[in-house]
Design a protein around this nucleic acid. Structure first.
Lengths: 214, 214
DNA sequence: CTTGACACCCTAACGGTGTGAGAGGACGGT
DNA sequence: ACCGTCCTCTCACACCGTTAGGGTGTCAAG
């Protein structure tokens, strides 16, 4: 009955039933423990959420680990963002849990390492931090938006216009030809294409701005 | 006692006490009405949140209005994102309310107009939509992150290290010299600088990619 | 003038939530 | 044998979203 076990149980509940399924009583029940007992291991619900966010980020696979041998820093930034995004989108409501959680003191060392890489590439420390902030904001913003759309699709599938999805879209978007064209164009792409588009803008912008100074 | 009044009261409560201060009973009390009465005007709490998000976006000042005469599309994109960001950051918890709300059907017309502008600039409809998605995700992601930090500063000001903020930072970040350098560098900038950095990357990336084809 | 329909509001209540207070059991050191 | 510390319990509070059902008022039709 450690604090880790509590966080694990909470994350299990999150994966199964979404954010609203995570309650103190339910987490306790899953551990064979009754309600307020959790207050011995965890200070707050807020703190539990923070711990969950931290653990979720840790499970995305060695975030802030640093680039591999011979890998350009921009490629590494891109891949790290991509991995975080897919991991967040994979488990239900994970983006909403992670959103707005400042890295814990123990993550500072990792951030420090990444800043080191970027500073070695020619960025000033402030620029490096801004770049990290921009990438992080974009990743979690995209993940939140993405999951919200997934939830919507799960709750209101009864749309008029028949069974064919294309026909339904055409019916719903009558009068907005460009939106219709955009969506039918995007439907052919893999699911993460919209995310990749902005990611490419950010990373390539960084590369164009700072590459070659290392 | 219209639905608009309910949403207005809810937004007042949000501005005063944050998201957790917005409850059906409190909104009703502010309107001189008792609890479940709201169910006559509003279907759900979820729907109330959606309406609040919609109204919040509307109050950012004519979003999706279209560029002004002689204004390049990229400048207009940038300014629109900036206005939305500052408006969201201005009222407490507004980012969390807005995050993950798909534009209502009535906003489709506005989106259609923006897509028209971008398509006229040479983007394909799918690209235009991806650009809008990227900008929107970045804006709300930044706003959420930003406000979360503001909340944190409000809740845990008792930090060790004395009164001087700089000394406190130096104490807290001992061992992370680059982070310390980054923060002391950023403290001199206006508060929106970190947001502006990523916004510039996105907008300039779009401009470099598609300008001149119009 | 009466009657009925409808819009709007009420109270009572249910099950759930986060959280606090205090009691009690297990266990190791003195 | 006693104490203190860890851990869990029960009980209780105040609040939450939501449902059910019973009222008022206004207003049109008979």
């Amino acid at each position: 009955m450690t604090r880790e076990a509590v966080v694990d149980a909470a994350l299990d509940l999150l994966a199964e039933g979404g954010l609203e399924a995570v309650s103190f009583r339910r987490v306790a029940a899953r551990l064979g423990v009754s309600g307020p007992t959790l207050y011995w291991h965890v200070e707050n619900k807020r703190q539990l959420m923070d711990l969950m966010a931290e653990e979720l980020l840790r499970r995305t696979g060695r975030v802030y680990a640093g680039p591999e041998e011979g890998q350009p820093w921009w490629e590494w930034l891109r891949e790290d963002a991509r991995r975080t995004f897919t991991a967040l989108v994979a488990t239900r409501d994970a983006p909403r849990v992670v959103a707005g959680n400042r890295p814990s003191p123990e993550s500072f060392a990792g951030i420090e390492r990444v800043l080191g890489v970027l500073v070695a590439a020619g960025l000033r420390p402030g620029e490096a931090q801004q770049a990290l902030f921009a990438l992080g904001s974009y990743v979690i913003g995209s993940a939140v938006e993405w999951q919200a759309e997934a939830d919507r699709g799960r709750s209101q599938p009864p749309a008029p216009g028949g069974e064919d999805p294309a026909a339904r879209r055409a019916c719903a978007l009558a009068g907005q030809p460009l939106l219709l064209a955009a969506i039918t164009e995007l439907v052919r792409h893999p699911h993460g294409a919209a995310f990749e588009f902005g990611l490419d803008l950010l990373v390539e912008g960084l590369r164009a701005r700072y590459a070659g100074e290392a």
